[in-house]
Simulated assay, not measured.
Amino acid sequence: MQMEPSVNVLGTTLEMCSRDPVTGFFRDGHCNTCYEDQGLHTVCAVMTAEFLAFSKYVGNDLSTPRPEFGFQGLKPGDQWCLCASRFFQAHDEGCAPRVRLEATHEKTLDVVPLDVLQEHAAD
């Protein structure tokens, strides 16, 4: 798997999203991506109870621990590399989490306009 360059939506070096819990398609703490990342796990989002409930409702339960996969479950305040399309869906539904622009990969812009990301900026 060849990783895309580590550049954020602002055109600078992609910052760390989270190591606790460890996140990212490559589980390296960054929202890096590659061709094989069909979900485009590139949005560094700060979890909220509202977003976690929404995600569970639409079929992606991020809050329940799954020890068989080494997943402790997310809670409000955790940072996580979300799929760009899920973030955009949450935006459309009015429950998008905050976004760390410096830690959100530029490939996100293939799915989500920069002004939408800026609207939810946590930085």
Rank of each mutant, 00 (worst) to 15 (best):
V46N: 00
Y57C: 05
H91I: 00
G29M: 00
Q2F: 13
M47H: 14
A90S: 15
R100G: 01
F88N: 05
S6E: 13
H91G: 08
L114T: 03
E93S: 03
L74V: 00
E68P: 00
V43H: 02
E68N: 04
P113N: 08
F88A: 03
V43F: 01
L52E: 11
K56S: 03
S55E: 14
V46M: 05
G77Q: 07
F71N: 11
D115V: 10
T108R: 01
W80T: 10
E4L: 10
Q2W: 04
L101R: 00
T64Y: 02
H41P: 07
D37H: 00
T104S: 10
T42P: 05
L14F: 10
L117V: 00
V116T: 15
M1L: 07
F71Q: 05
P65T: 07
A122F: 14
A90F: 12
L109S: 00
H41I: 02
G77D: 07
S55W: 11
E15I: 04
Q38H: 03
L52K: 10
E15G: 09
A90Y: 06
D61Y: 02
G11D: 09
M16C: 13
H30I: 10
P21L: 09
T104N: 09
H105E: 03
G39Y: 04
D115P: 14
P113K: 03
A121I: 04
A84K: 01
F71Y: 13
Q2G: 14
R98W: 06
S6F: 09
R19M: 12
A53G: 11
D37F: 00
Q72A: 15
D123A: 01
V116R: 05
D20R: 05
R27G: 04
G70I: 14
L114R: 03
S63I: 01
C95A: 03
T42H: 09
Y35M: 15
E68R: 02
R86S: 08
S85R: 02
N60Q: 14
T108W: 00
A49R: 15
L109C: 06
R86F: 07
T48S: 14
C83M: 07
H30Y: 15
R27N: 12
A96Y: 08
H120W: 07
D92C: 09
K107Y: 10
E106Q: 14
H120Y: 05
T23L: 12
G77Y: 08
N32A: 15
V111C: 02
G24F: 01
H91Q: 10
T64G: 04
S63Y: 13
D78R: 11
A103Q: 02
R98G: 04
H30L: 14
L52H: 10
G94K: 01
F69K: 15
E36N: 09
T104D: 09
D92E: 14
F54I: 13
M1P: 08
V43C: 11
F88K: 01
V116C: 07
L10K: 09
V22H: 05
Q118T: 05
V111A: 05
G24E: 08
E68L: 09
Y35K: 13
D110G: 08
L82R: 01
P21Q: 08
K75P: 06
E119R: 08
L117G: 02
V43W: 00
P97I: 00
V99T: 07
R19F: 11
L52W: 03
R19P: 04
E4Y: 11
G59H: 10
M3L: 14
C83F: 01
C44M: 04
A122S: 05
G24T: 07
D123G: 02
Q2K: 11
V22M: 15
P113I: 05
